[in-house]
Simulated scan of single mutants.
Amino acid sequence: MSESVPPVLVFDMFGVIARHQSPESLLAIERAARLSGPRLWRPYWDLRAPYDRGDRSGRDYWRTVARAAETEFGDDQIDELIARDLDSWSEVDDEMVDLVADMSGRTRVALLSNLPADLAAHVERLHRPLLELFEVRAFSCRIGHAKPEAEVYTWCLEQLGVPASDTMFVDDRTENVRAAERLGMAGHLFVSADELRRAIKEPHRATTPRAGG
């Protein structure tokens, strides 16, 4: 292992290795919901955490979204919403997949991602070779905690059997990176694969001054 590479690299999935939802996929969700704009997207995000933690099923999640939007979704409509939602989180960034594969041959790599049970199963079906690169796969729905809750990071560290100081955590959300740093992990706010490669060579530098996420 190269001395310039951290002993353990812990990656977020969505917004780092996998791409965010495309405009086309968001439109497909809107069509299935027969809603658009803040009326749909505000409850979609505001009510997401219990779904990510595994506290709520996909059907229950979409029912709560409907109530918040002051409408109702039928059972078939909910099935369509779940399917379109899963589709929207399906695309990976090939450059980042190559980077993870390269790093897995040089150091230990782990995955720490907020995702509900439906999406975890979908990702495992769709991206099995990618997931097999990770020594530990920490999915919020199976831990019962979600970033930026401290418990999700400590669970991952316990599974790896390493101190926080031996890890670099990579995420595209500022609050998630800062939560990791509060536990003693080196943090990197992801912007691009090239910038991440530079940061990996200098794992102890501060990497979260940029706003956003």
Rank of each mutant, 00 (worst) to 15 (best):
L157R: 00
R108E: 15
P38L: 03
S90L: 12
C156R: 00
P129G: 01
V177Y: 00
Y51R: 01
A121F: 08
E149M: 04
S104D: 04
P43E: 05
A211E: 10
A199P: 01
A33P: 04
P129Y: 00
Q77C: 10
D166N: 13
R198F: 05
R197G: 06
A211S: 12
L119D: 09
F11V: 02
T154S: 06
A32G: 05
L133W: 04
W62T: 03
P6C: 09
R59C: 03
A120R: 12
P50L: 03
Q21V: 03
H122K: 11
A199C: 12
L160S: 15
R106H: 15
P148K: 09
S88R: 14
M96V: 15
D171I: 03
G54I: 00
L183W: 06
E95M: 12
D75K: 13
P50R: 02
A199M: 08
N176F: 00
L9D: 08
P163N: 10
R19P: 01
C156I: 13
L26F: 04
D52E: 07
P7T: 14
A18N: 07
S25N: 11
F139R: 04
E30G: 04
W45Y: 05
D76F: 11
L99K: 08
V109D: 02
A150I: 01
T64V: 10
L119F: 09
A121V: 13
A117H: 15
S36R: 10
V109H: 01
V109C: 08
D118G: 09
P38F: 02
R84L: 10
R39G: 03
E132C: 14
V5K: 05
R63E: 12
V97P: 11
S113F: 02
L196F: 11
A164C: 12
S2G: 07
N114A: 11
P129H: 01
R198T: 14
D55R: 01
T107E: 08
D60P: 02
L157Q: 01
R31H: 09
A150T: 03
V100A: 15
P209F: 09
D166Y: 09
D93V: 14
H188K: 05
R42Y: 04
R48D: 04
D79R: 13
L160D: 14
F73V: 14
L111T: 02
T107R: 07
I82N: 03
A120H: 11
A28V: 03
L35G: 07
A121Y: 06
V123Y: 01
E30Y: 04
V97F: 10
H204D: 13
L9I: 15
R205L: 15
